[in-house]
Design a protein around this nucleic acid. Structure first.
Lengths: 192, 192
DNA sequence: TTCATTACGTGATGTAGATCACATTCGTAA
DNA sequence: TTACGAATGTGATCTACATCACGTAATGAA
C-alpha cells in the first residue's frame, strides 16, 4: 500500500480529520528507505525524529555494558518507533533503532509534530491516543514480565507478532523475551 | 496545599491555560477521600474514572491466580492512577487500585476527560504529554526489569520514591520489585 | 564454488531467587 | 492493657535460567 494511504487509514482509526487537513498533516512526513541491518538511531545520537513503519520491520533495543542486547519493541507496518525518552527530553539516545529487514518508513521531526499538534486539534488528539495505547501496551508487557514465566511470554509474543516467527533470527526473539538464546532454544524444542 | 492549586500547578508545567479555562477544566473534577486500606478499583469493576492524588499514597496492582500481588505503580501527590487498559477500552478491571495510606484525590470521569479534551485544545495537549511521560517511565522500568538485578532495582526504587522507605510495609516494596519478601529482606540486611 | 561469518543446538555446571517452615516483633482494636 | 493478626527475619531446600563450551548447519560475499 502507498505510504500516504497507510498513514491516513491509521490516523482515521483514531481521529476525525478532513482530506485537506490530512494532506497538510502528511506534508510534514518524509519518506525514507533503509536496508536490512542499517542503523537508524545509535546510542549517543541526537534524536530529532520518530518513525512510522510502512514496510519491513525495525527493532528498538538497548545494549548494556556487558554487550547484552534487550529488545524493547519490534516495529511492524503502522507501528511507530524512536528513542522517545531522548526525543521528548532532548537528551542523547540510550536506545538504538535499526532494521531487522529492508524497510520503508515515514519520518516526522519533533518540531513538526509539535507544530501540527498546535495547529490541528485533531492531530493532538491522534497523538494523545497513539501514546495512550502505547502506555497500556508497555504496562501490560511489564506485568507479563513480572508474572509469567519465559514459556508463557514466548507464546504471548507469537500472538502479538505472528509475522516474526520464522522471519527473524531466534536470538532476537530471545533478546525480546529477556532470556538467553540457549534457554529459548531448549524451550521451544522441548515443549511441543 | 489546596487540591485546586496543586492540580493547577501540575497542569501549568505542561500546558498554557488561562485562569478561566482552568476553572472550567477543574469543574469536571470531583474531590474524594479514602481511608487507608480502602479499595478504589477492584478486579471486575466497570472502570469509569481516573484519579489525581492530592495527598496520601495509592497503589495500582495485579493479583494472579496464585494470589501473588504485583504492584505496577505507587501514586503519590500529583501522580495519576487508574486501570487505564480498562478505562480506555471500556473493559472490566483487571488491575486493582487501593490506598496505602489515607488519601485525598480528585476523580475525573472518562467522558468528562474526552469532553474537556475536545472543548479545550490545551487540555488535549496536557493529557498527551502526561501520557508521553508515563510511556517513557513505563519503558524505562521495563528495561530495568530486563537488565538489572534485584538489588539495583531496589536502589532505583529508593531514588524514585524516597518517601516510601520506612513508610510502607516491606512486602509492598517487594511486590513492586517483583521479588519475594524474603529475598528483599535478605537483600537490604546483607548489603550494607 | 569456496570460505567465513552468523545462527542454532545441546551438554555440564553455577547461581539468584522462589518456596517452605518457623520464630519474633509490631500495630491496632477491643 | 491485652491479644491477635500482620509484618518481618532467617535457615534449608529447590529450580529456572545464565553461562561456558563446543559442534553443526545455514547464509552471504568474493
Amino acid at each position: 500500500m502507498q505510504a500516504k494511504a497507510l498513514l491516513k487509514e491509521h490516523v482515521l482509526k483514531i481521529a476525525s480529520i478532513t482530506d485537506e487537513e490530512f494532506d497538510y498533516f502528511f506534508s510534514h512526513f518524509k519518506p525514507e528507505t533503509f536496508k536490512k541491518g542499517q542503523s537508524i538511531i545509535s546510542e549517543g545520537d541526537v534524536v530529532d525524529k520518530e518513525y512510522f513503519v510502512i514496510d519491513g520491520c525495525l527493532k528498538a533495543f538497548f545494549v548494556n555494558d556487558e554487550v547484552k542486547m534487550y529488545i524493547l519493541q519490534f516495529a511492524m507496518p503502522t507501528w511507530w518507533a524512536s528513542d522517545y525518552a531522548a526525543l521528548y527530553n532532548k537528551t542523547k539516545a540510550t536506545i538504538n533503532v535499526d532494521c531487522v529487514s529492508d524497510a520503508a518508513i515515514l519520518s516526522l521531526s519533533n518540531s513538526d509534530r509539535e507544530k501540527i499538534c498546535s495547529e490541528l486539534h485533531q492531530a493532538e488528539h491522534f497523538f494523545r491516543w497513539r501514546t495512550n495505547k502505547g502506555y497500556v501496551a508497555a504496562q501490560k508487557r511489564l506485568l507479563s514480565f513480572m508474572n509469567n514465566d519465559t514459556k508463557t511470554r514466548y507464546e504471548e509474543l507469537l500472538v502479538l507478532y505472528p509475522a516474526l516467527y520464522n522471519t527473524v533470527p531466534k536470538h532476537l526473539i530471545a533478546a525480546y523475551l529477556g532470556v538467553s538464546r540457549e534457554t529459548l532454544s531448549r524451550l521451544y524444542n522441548s515443549s511441543k
